[in-house]
Structures are given as C-alpha cells and as structure tokens.
Amino acid sequence: MTPLPIRDRAGNALTGFRSVSEAELRRLGGRDVVPAALVVVEHAGSVLMVFDAWRADWELPGGGREPGESARRTAIRELREETGIHGVGLEAVAVAEFDLVAPERHELLAVYRARLRAAPRLLLNDEVLDFLWWPPSDPVREDMSPLDAEIARRVARMPAA
C-alpha cells in the first residue's frame, strides 16, 4: 500500500482513506460534505477502469451527486451511465479524502464496491471511450489516475462484508 498523500500530474492529492459502513456514510451528511461517489467494480481479480473522454485517463466509474440524491443513488446512477451496469449490489466500503486544485477545495468521496461473478456487457458512450479490467497488483499505467488506482488497490484488499 502506497503511503498517503499521493498526487496526480495535475497536483490533486489523495490524502486519506478509511473504511465506513453505509450508516456512517449517511451520517456524514449531504452533498456539500460528500459531493461525489466512486465505484470499484471487481471481477476475476481485476478492477474495472473507464477511459474518461474529458480527462483522457483511466479512472474508476463515478461522479458528482445531483440535488436531493444520496451517495448510494449517485453511485448507482453513475455506474449505469458510464458502463451500462445496473441491478448489481453495491456495498459502501470507504470514504476517500482529497485535496483538489481546480478549484482549490477539500472533498470526501463515497466509495462503493460491486463484486461481479460474471463479466458484464459494457456500453460505451460520449463520456467513456473504453474499458480496462486492471489487476490491482499490476503497475499503475502512465495514462491512469494514480489516485483512483490507489483507491482500487485498497478496496480490493478489503474483506467482503
């Protein structure tokens, strides 16, 4: 496990990572406290990474919360929108803490896990240009978010609920 903080090439930093339950995540509060959610999708020892069209790198599926939406609903919606995966069980596993640079801010992101028994049918879209099943034991690629890769590695090491 890489010691924190770690930074990406833009200067954003993953500064913390801690396990949480769904109840703890709900207690953290609303959109201002936890404005986004990420999903670590695991299958056959690998984690699903998506190639983001805007940032041009491999990252975990996820995104920002919409008004009135819980972190869980955000994770479900973003996973469906970015991959086509729906109807799978999501487990709240962690909160990731970031210091971001554009604009400067400190954020907590909800992290969920989906463990799949079969490879899903994945759907490309305007936001996601490709998919990669990445083994977390492999080196982090040059075109991969080191922050998301570290989150994926930490979640992959966590026991099942």
Rank of each mutant, 00 (worst) to 15 (best):
L147Q: 06
I76A: 05
L14F: 09
M1I: 12
L100N: 10
L4S: 10
L108V: 03
D32T: 12
A96Q: 05
V101K: 02
D99L: 00
D148T: 07
H43N: 02
R9S: 13
R73L: 09
E24P: 01
D130V: 12
S46Q: 14
P146G: 09
P5Y: 09
F51A: 10
P5A: 06
S137D: 15
V47M: 02
V20S: 03
E59H: 09
R18G: 09
E24A: 11
Y112P: 00
P61C: 10
P67V: 04
M144N: 07
E91H: 03
R72E: 02
D52E: 14
P5C: 05
R72T: 00
V88N: 05
V34Q: 02
M1D: 14
D52I: 01
E81A: 11
R55D: 10
R55Q: 12
A53S: 14
R72V: 00
A23Q: 15
E91T: 05
S46A: 15
A118E: 12
V155F: 00
P103F: 15
L124F: 12
P136D: 14
A23R: 14
E150P: 15
Y112V: 00
A152K: 06
W58K: 07
V95D: 00
G29R: 08
E150T: 15
R80V: 00
S145C: 12
G45T: 03
E59I: 01
